[in-house]
Simulated scan of single mutants.
Amino acid sequence: MARAGLTTERVARAGADLADEIGLERVTLSEVARRFEVKVPSLYSHVRSSDDLRAQIALIALQEMADLAASAVAGRSGQQALVALGHVYRDYGRDFPGRYDATQVRLDAETAAASAGPRHASMLRAVLRAYDLSEDEQTHAARLLGSVFHGFVSLERSGGFAHSTPAPQQSWEHILDSLDAMLRSWSARHD
């Protein structure tokens, strides 16, 4: 590939693909440079460092997940929206493991504000509005959902459920039903 064809987006997308193949922690500028058959200094006008590359991968992943979530929850509310959102997280974690890991990369405040992160937060709050929670309670509930979704995805991907029954899918469905029931009764317990 010709060096002239390099752009920040192409470099970041190559890094994202590589992260899914070999794991985010192993993505380096050297690995991406090999993909483009260029030397590492050729990448410096597009990304400053491996950490900057991982941040760019995070931006891609957050945008992709936001797009998937928006499509999944459109026209749904309550339990249907909650389940759809949960499936987006789980499916994305399985289908794009390196990119999913990148969603956990800590971004500086300016980058985070310009990312799809606020869009995720807005969608999650929209899902939670069906449960009639105050703004503060929505924050607590959003943290709970994020912890449960991420925890399940992480444990499943690491093989944490591989040697036990019932199947992870059954647990996942039970968890989503339980989250819905808990959220429906949340305000009564916290008034």
Rank of each mutant, 00 (worst) to 15 (best):
L29E: 08
A74V: 09
Q56A: 15
G93Y: 00
I60L: 10
P118Y: 06
A66C: 09
D52A: 14
E9H: 12
M65V: 04
G146M: 01
D52Y: 06
E137M: 14
V40A: 07
A69H: 09
S115I: 05
D91P: 00
R143I: 15
V105E: 10
G86D: 01
F149Q: 11
S77N: 10
F96C: 14
A58M: 07
R157I: 07
Q104F: 13
Q104C: 09
G15H: 01
L82K: 01
A113L: 10
V40Q: 12
L176A: 08
H163T: 13
G15N: 05
F161C: 05
L6R: 07
T103R: 03
L124H: 03
L43I: 09
G75S: 05
V83F: 11
V32L: 02
R54N: 06
T111H: 01
A81I: 04
V38E: 03
A72P: 06
D191H: 11
T139K: 14
R3I: 12
M1Q: 13
V11K: 02
G5W: 04
Q79R: 14
L24E: 01
G5Y: 08
A113T: 06
M123H: 02
Q56T: 12
G159A: 06
D52V: 07
R119V: 15
G93C: 01
A109S: 14
R48H: 12
E37R: 15
A167I: 01
V11D: 06
A109R: 15
V38H: 06
V83I: 11
L179V: 05
E137R: 15
L53F: 05
Y92V: 00
S147R: 14
T28I: 10
F152I: 00
S71M: 10
R3C: 09
T8Y: 08
L155S: 13
M1H: 14
M1P: 10
R189I: 02
A55Q: 10
D95A: 14
A188M: 11
L183F: 03
A69S: 13
D51W: 12
Q104V: 10
S122V: 10
G146Q: 07
H120S: 04
R35G: 07
V47C: 02
L145Y: 03
R143K: 13
W186C: 04
L24F: 00
V148C: 05
A4V: 15
H163Y: 13
A66E: 04
A181S: 14
M65R: 05
R26F: 08
A181C: 09
G93P: 00
A167V: 03
A66F: 05
P166H: 01
V83P: 00
M182R: 13
G160F: 04
S71D: 12
A16K: 02
L85K: 02
Q169P: 04
L59P: 02
V153F: 03
R143M: 15
R143A: 15
D20V: 01
L144K: 03
R26E: 10
G151H: 11
I60S: 00
